[in-house]
Amino acid sequence: MHWSSILWALFQILIFPGLLFLVALALAAEFVDRKLYARLQNRLGPPWFQPLADLIKLLAKQEVVPDLADKFMFVVTPMFALTAAVTASFYIPIWSHQALCSFPGDVIVVLYLLTIPTITFFLGGWYSRSVYSMIGAARSIMQLFAYEIPLFLAILAPALLAGTWSLSGMSLFYAHRPLLSLLNLLGLAIALVALLGKLERVPFDAPEAETEIVAGSFTEYSGRLLALFRLAIDVEMVVGASLLAAVFLPFGMDFGPVAGFGLYLAKILAVISMLSLMRTLFARLRLDQMINFCWQIAAPLAFVQLMADLVAKGTIARGVMIP
């Protein structure tokens, strides 16, 4: 029992649906994003293997740790970023209602695990001791406080309606009441926008605005460490898309693993396409504009979503509406 189960667990963590699968998916997601971005701009875009080629190139390059940087923190933060993003994926149901691991309250854990990469961007940038990195780090953390509230509200509202703090439980709840998930469409829109902030993409890419602060937190990073950071962002994109798919689009998980997996891919493709489209359409917002937007528009709308879910819960409890 021991050995076989440990081996099976290791296989799940490292290969499928763990690290290796996620990395492959992340690279595919980066390709889709870049290709779509290019096509939307009437360009040709990269070939399918470009993200992999970039990764290999970066892995092969020399990494330079600045003299002034805190060596330990500088090296450790990219690993933390990747680990956190991969770990978060274990709690998200992918092709069935049951995630790899699941316990009541895992939705909170996933949201916090997805916060860790941003914290590592801050720490990595701050300990680089370069002025651009430090400005980028400060911007990262300020932006975190702006988008995190709408994101949490938007994701917790459906959980409130489902009456469970477990993603697997939520998935099961909405799969049996598909009409109720239509109620959460506003939440989906807010979560998409907040995800843009989390991934630090246009229009919320002030923390790594190329024309202002070179590459923000990542200015001093090179070689393998930069590759890890970039991979972490890609994995975060996939995990974020999976989270949104599990919470807001919980359809078709009862058709068996193959169809379920195909549908899952279609769902995250849709989410990633939306992210690419938004990055095509907008100019970069200044940090103050971004924070104003999140607090004045996104957060109140997320509250509206929360209220809607609370009202729906009340009516269901009284037996008025049982889909």
Binding site: Q41, V202, T211, F282, A283, R284
Partner: peptide
Amino acid sequence: AGHEVGFDTLLMYTWR
């Protein structure tokens, strides 16, 4: 100008 404010789409279209 589009590029400097992170609006690369405008850059791509005008330059095209």
